[in-house]
Design a protein around this nucleic acid. Sequence first.
DNA 1: AAATCAATTTGCATATTTGCAAGGTGTGAT
DNA 2: ATCACACCTTGCAAATATGCAAATTGATTT
Lengths: 293, 293
Amino acid sequence: MDWNLLHSFLAIARNGSLNGAARELGVNHSTIFRRLNLFEDTLSLRLFDRLPQGYKLTQAGEELLRQAEQIGDAFDALERQFTGQDFRPRGVVRITAPNNIAYHYLPAWLSQFKALYPEIKVELIVGNQDLNLTRREADIAIRATANPPEHLIARKLADINWGIYGAIEFPPVTGFDVNSLRHQPLIGAEGAMANLTAFRWQEQHLKDAIVARANDLNAMAAMAEYGMGLAFLPDDQQNPRLKRLDTLKQGKQSHLWLLLHPDLRKVERVKLLVSHLQRCFSEDPRLSSRGDG
Amino acid sequence: MDWNLLHSFLAIARNGSLNGAARELGVNHSTIFRRLNLFEDTLSLRLFDRLPQGYKLTQAGEELLRQAEQIGDAFDALERQFTGQDFRPRGVVRITAPNNIAYHYLPAWLSQFKALYPEIKVELIVGNQDLNLTRREADIAIRATANPPEHLIARKLADINWGIYGAIEFPPVTGFDVNSLRHQPLIGAEGAMANLTAFRWQEQHLKDAIVARANDLNAMAAMAEYGMGLAFLPDDQQNPRLKRLDTLKQGKQSHLWLLLHPDLRKVERVKLLVSHLQRCFSEDPRLSSRGDG
DNA sequence: AAATCAATTTGCATATTTGCAAGGTGTGAT
DNA sequence: ATCACACCTTGCAAATATGCAAATTGATTT
């Protein structure tokens, strides 16, 4: 018997959904879906009723769960003993991320990681420049792109939609359309930035409302923070001093990827950080979580 | 944690070797090798000392084994409950095998299988003809060949060497060479059979010793059984009424394969029979067992 | 000392699992 | 009634595991 099938069964039972189980085990929800079906086929038993509200244990499933829990507890105890004290992963992991992710997301998460693994040293390289992962200039890269490079392993962290952002003090609104935006001071783009879909649309429809321009998203965000006007920003640019007022449907969605070199995928400290970040991204409401990062 | 890694560790600990663990779990010994190494890397622990005599548990391995045994026992209990009574695989499995395998190997093994799974009906089709697995003329085919067909899934069952066989009453010998064979009555080949490597060598070096000929291996085996002379036979032709006197190095080694159609690999009753036969072949001393079927 | 044997280790190809993306479904909010 | 959302299911491509065959190693036998 494939012991991991029971592991997946247990996670579904504990979480009540494929998505929840996927988060717990750090795999894709479609993987959990297939493992459960394989398990049921192997046993010739239905373990869950598929309800619109989620997966509900059948009678056979309830019986299996009692033993699965014991086995699960035994594995937990075993892992605590063998990976808690005896196993102290150490070493350096270098991670690079764009400015905003580096400033507003990673610090909290990396401090959580530090608490879990005190002997792993994380080096954070801020910026969006093309570092060479083959030469170990960074071990992990977080990048926003529509097309991750093919020579690297890519894991999707989040979808990035565009939003309309204002200063934190901006009064509550129920959304914007092109007409209501026309009456707002707007931060526009210049230089190469003007080619982005969101800003091309802005130029076409809202050129007269633009009161300031910048060629850098961080600068646009800063201007919005200080109340110079509303800024169109991808959601990974948000921070606690900005208020997300609406979704900008005219912005082209992109994706945040975690990239790493294939040779590092089995390095334990890298694996641990990758798993940790995937979980943090999937649970953070600020980004359109995929729920199964 | 990948729970199957513990399963593999437990099997090695129980059997004392990669080969033994492989037989128990029905996988290749190299798979067990890799799983153990992955497990040790994951835990950053050495679980076994690699000695020439085999794998010996380290202190950490002994500690892990205590908990692994409990988990293993829990899985065994779970499997008995969920696959012993509730799960009764049923249906028909058609298997085809060459005459000698069908007469002298399969009956015992299929009766063992019947005891384990009383509601699976096995249909045995004797012969070497090309049945169409795609049209379900047979579900499983056992065939001796050097090159299994590429559209089928092939699992190696055994290497087939050639041997020199005599009647069961033949006096003990310490082996043969070309000179000592010259003084023995030999069974030769005719027709297409004469093209086989073993028989070509026989014609070149021992033509004068040939006292009878046949174009069929079963017929040659029968002649040897009744003492007409010694026969050169591939080892899968042996039976309890024949005595293997020596290995024939001049015979071209071939292999016994278990073949099945890709669509059937997930059908439970087929999987069960495939696993059962692989184990039986790997444990039978009459064939040059690969030790890891 | 050389040959044989059994077990381990490894490169390469194949098989299988998994992730991604998208479609489908049902519920709840508007 | 329509839309948005969350979850489930599936096709295809990518990633990973595994099997096969052979090389390596050390012990045993000749």
